[in-house]
Amino acid sequence: MADNVNPRRYDSPVRERRAQATRTAVLDAAEQMFTTRGFVRTTLPAVAEEAGVSLATVKLAFKTKTDLLLNVWHRTLAGGVDDQVPVVDRDWYQQQFEIADPVERIHFASRTGLMIRQRIAGLIAAIEAGAAVDETLAALRDRMFEEHWHVTRNFAQRLADDGHLRDGLTVERATDELWLLNHVSNYRHLTETRGWSAEEYTAWLTRTVSHAVLKPELCQ
């Protein structure tokens, strides 16, 4: 009976681990190239060479360069985790709502947002540049901004529910102000162009957001 056992079923976990390792190598190589070379100058053959795999392997896993960038984007946004769990469902996002003091909550969100912007700034630049020549990337850019707005709206709604928004400020307008102040372009201008430190940027964002949307007495 032992001669009839199919040995291939025992190889399956090994193959899965090898496939995941290959996928990780390709994503690592692609992220490095997209952020340093940009979308147009990054090619699938170059990614394959950098990852140490065949071009056929890259195409089998990701089909197109745009599809590869989409997968890199989701992994980078998730902090290196190769999944597509929505931001609002992640533990670090939910933790901020355990903070009762609104200024402290904004400070926590500012520090968390800084870590995300440090990860995604280069990729966003690649996506924005690629959007000029690729309709899918243009749609991704628009979707990123839209998703960021909706995540921000959830934050603004929680401030409103807790009675923290300044008088006369609607959730929609608060969302717009928060969305603009937290935009990655501000981070890039202040840290890359003007040379601000991460601490200076976080302090500015916390102070500016707090005075923009909270009741004045909460900012004293």
Rank of each mutant, 00 (worst) to 15 (best):
M1C: 09
D3S: 14
N6S: 10
P7Q: 01
R9M: 10
Y10T: 09
V14E: 09
R15E: 15
R15Q: 15
E16K: 15
E16Q: 15
R17M: 09
R17G: 06
R18M: 15
R18N: 14
A19S: 15
T22F: 00
T22N: 13
T24R: 15
D28E: 12
A30I: 02
E31A: 10
M33C: 01
T35Y: 01
R37F: 04
G38K: 01
F39H: 05
R41P: 00
A48T: 08
E49H: 15
E49N: 14
E49M: 15
V53M: 11
S54N: 12
V58C: 10
K59S: 08
A61Y: 12
F62M: 04
T64W: 01
L69M: 12
L70P: 00
W73I: 05
W73H: 06
H74C: 00
L77Q: 13
L77R: 11
A78H: 03
A78N: 13
G80F: 00
V81P: 00
V81Q: 03
D82I: 04
D82P: 02
V87S: 11
V87I: 15
R90M: 04
Q96H: 07
E98F: 08
A100T: 08
V103D: 09
V103A: 06
R105M: 10
R105N: 05
I106Y: 08
I106T: 09
H107P: 01
F108T: 07
T112N: 13
R119A: 12
R119C: 07
R119D: 09
I124V: 04
A126N: 01
E128S: 11
A129Q: 09
A129Y: 00
G130K: 03
A131M: 05
V133W: 08
D134V: 03
D134Q: 07
E135N: 10
E135W: 07
T136R: 03
L140D: 00
R141L: 05
D142A: 02
F145C: 02
E146V: 06
H148Q: 13
W149G: 03
H150G: 04
V151Y: 01
F155E: 05
R158N: 13
A160W: 07
D162M: 14
H164F: 10
L169M: 12
T175E: 06
T175W: 05
W179A: 13
V184H: 11
N186T: 14
R188G: 07
L190K: 13
E192C: 00
T193E: 10
T193W: 07
W196G: 03
E199G: 13
T202H: 11
W204E: 01
W204Q: 02
V209M: 06
H211L: 10
A212P: 04
A212F: 02
A212E: 13
V213Q: 05
L214P: 10
P216Q: 10
C219I: 15
Q220I: 14
Q220D: 12
